[in-house]
Write a protein that binds this DNA or RNA. Structure first.
Length: 278
DNA sequence: ACGAGGTCCTGCGAGC
DNA sequence: TGCTCGCAGGACCTCG
């Protein structure tokens, strides 16, 4: 679930407690989230190095250590990284994947119900090679409508699928793709090469607006997502289309529809506002 | 270059 | 109550 706003919220919450610190007693409970790295190497890196920076790139949490190594966490569907104190509750015990102590009775916990998330340990070269394949950050200052337009070139896939393609632009997943397309009044199934200049410009604006608003609301909690301090986000109460199939459109009152025709993912839209032929 | 579909996982609600 | 099925925020792969 976590998309850009959720990952950004977690990183902002955790950075003050983690940067400049080293972790103690790291423990790995489930090993199938590890990709290229072995448990031994991961735990060794956590044990022996201070955290010098924590930031977000795309939907990844990047923890830079005081070597050229970084621990890269991709939360995917149900991963969450948070600080916990006191006795771990049942859920934590059941779903924790990795944890480490940061002192004063506080621990850093990576929990993941479905364990589709991934943890990697990459040196600078491997990280650069990886991140170069990803698209630009939609909230960066350099990201302008022109760059967005260029990124959408050369494909006939549905605009919703292109928007979620992390090689074109990063950070947008199913929830915010639905929201941005609705807000920009664009048919999610429209071929990307058929979007006119004005539609692309509206989409650019709405992608940025919805991501910023979701960050302000500390993310969308449908089920598993928690902020870095273990709380629920609040954007789920502000969603206009996602999860509202069968309910009235907030703008025109038409009944919102849900389809799985685009890439097999739930797409909810308004026939009238998004100009879709029945 | 594209769409379709499978894969990694567990939980949950619907339907019987 | 208990079962089976399909679906859930993501990203990767193969096949035709």
């Amino acid at each position: 679930m976590p998309e850009l706003p959720e990952v950004e919220t977690i990183v902002r919450d955790l950075a003050p407690s983690l940067v400049g610190r080293s972790l103690k007693n790291p423990r790995l409970f489930k090993r199938n989230v590890l990709r290229e790295v072995t448990p031994r190497r991961l735990l060794g890196a956590l044990r022996n190095h201070k955290i010098v920076d924590l930031h977000r790139r795309a939907k990844h949490i990047v923890m830079l250590l005081d070597s050229d190594l970084r621990i890269v966490i991709q939360l995917r569907m149900s991963g969450t990284l948070l600080l916990a104190r006191g006795k771990p509750d049942q859920d934590e015990q059941r779903y924790r994947v990795l944890q480490a102590e940061i002192g004063r009775g506080t621990r850093l916990v990576y929990r993941d119900v479905r364990r589709l998330g991934t943890i990697n340990l990459l040196d600078e070269k491997a990280w650069n090679a990886y991140t170069e394949r990803l698209g630009p950050e939609p909230l960066s200052e350099e990201f302008d409508p022109d760059q967005f337009s260029k990124r959408l070139r050369g494909t006939k896939v549905a605009i919703k699928k292109a928007l979620m393609d992390q090689r074109r632009v990063v950070g947008v997943g199913n929830i915010y793709a639905n929201e941005a397309l609705y807000r920009a009044r664009i048919d999610p199934s429209l071929r990307t090469d058929k979007l006119n200049r004005s539609a692309k410009h509206r989409l650019y604006e709405e992608v940025r607006a919805v991501l910023n608003e979701a960050i302000d609301a500390r993310g969308t909690t449908l089920k598993d997502y928690r902020t870095g301090t273990g709380e629920r986000g609040s954007f789920q109460g502000i969603l206009q289309v996602y999860g509202r199939g069968g309910e009235p459109c907030l703008a025109c009152g038409s009944t919102l529809a849900t389809t799985h025709a685009i890439d097999g993912r739930a797409t909810t839209f308004c026939w009238r506002c998004q100009g879709i032929k029945r």
